[in-house]
Write a protein that binds this DNA or RNA. Sequence first.
DNA 1: GATGCCCCCTGACAAATGTCATGGGTGCGG
DNA 2: CCGCACCCATGACATTTGTCAGGGGGCATC
Lengths: 201, 201
Amino acid sequence: MIKVLLAEDQGMMRGALALLLDLEEDMQVVAQVAAGDRIVPAALEARPDIALLDIELPGRSGLDAAADLRDALPSCKVLIVTTFGRPGYLRRAMEAGASGFLVKDGPVEDLAAAIRRVLAGERVIDPGLAAAALSAGPNPLTQRERDVLTAAVDGATVSDIAGKLHLSQATVRNYLSAAIGKTGTRNRMEAVRAARQNGWL
Amino acid sequence: MIKVLLAEDQGMMRGALALLLDLEEDMQVVAQVAAGDRIVPAALEARPDIALLDIELPGRSGLDAAADLRDALPSCKVLIVTTFGRPGYLRRAMEAGASGFLVKDGPVEDLAAAIRRVLAGERVIDPGLAAAALSAGPNPLTQRERDVLTAAVDGATVSDIAGKLHLSQATVRNYLSAAIGKTGTRNRMEAVRAARQNGWL
DNA sequence: GATGCCCCCTGACAAATGTCATGGGTGCGG
DNA sequence: CCGCACCCATGACATTTGTCAGGGGGCATC
């Protein structure tokens, strides 16, 4: 019997997937969590064979949680299940030790199949996405550039960002300018979009 | 037997919900579509009793499709099922003649229950959301202000927007300024966020 | 120990953005 | 007919943003 942990913040999605997996003869959902920081505790409690993790979760990113889980419960495989097939996400997932990366676009049947393949020792990755991740190259942004961009996502002004990060305004503008340059965009807003698109934030 | 049409772009979600609803004794998913402009044709073909519509769909918004469906197949009830419980969405859904508005956050059990309540003639609406929709008031933005804001979402410059909408640059800036004023924000980016948050776009 | 990369800052300049006052044209309801 | 709201436009202004050319300090690597 395959014991599954399910981490997904959308209640309806979580419930539907749990129900669906429980229908499989050889699978059983032994834990369900809605927040990223509940993953490791729940896993230590329930000892699943595989963890299905969404990326964008409240509390802690599924990618960070995957790395935590790798340390806390190495026997547990990780399969990332996400809405967004962003190159940077895939890359980070692999670095965090995930065994598979599935986008929620595909048919549901893929899910159980992917679980079985992962448990059989395979790596499950969308081939098109893998190509995109390779062609996109690694994240070109430095830590500080990411900080500044993430602080700029919801329309904060330069002085807002400077205040939040305890930086000079001129410095903030320099980082923004660098990020704009590296993303090949024309302004802050496009840079934020491009960085998010690639999973660089 | 309740015949259900399911419109949802995310394959995994769509499949899982379909499977789940088919498990109900008295329900049957008679049509599944992934794009908004497929809703009416599929409904005319399959003659469902109720249509479950996501809002943010490729092709045509679920809200617009709800209005179309109202004309094309008045016997079919509409239940909006969406990720985003935005006040403006709820308001528009009601204006489009929807009988219910469900957010995907809640437990799956709510879904079948909501379907039955809608078919029994009830209106199904999250009470907290209804309150938010009322307190937020109606959309204060004019058509043109919406156009300009939507054209500005992904970082387009003033001249980009002016070109796309065939307007003078000064005019675009006036509309943007008006939108910023009405949303009580400080710049274009915040205005876009606020307008989206409220479902005004 | 030189090189390179990142961090943080300054100052100055050009361009884009946001605001305001002002105008004319349309269509709608009182 | 008048008021009102919306549409589109202009010009002028202050502010913000993006760019460029610097300089200093830390840390790792060759």
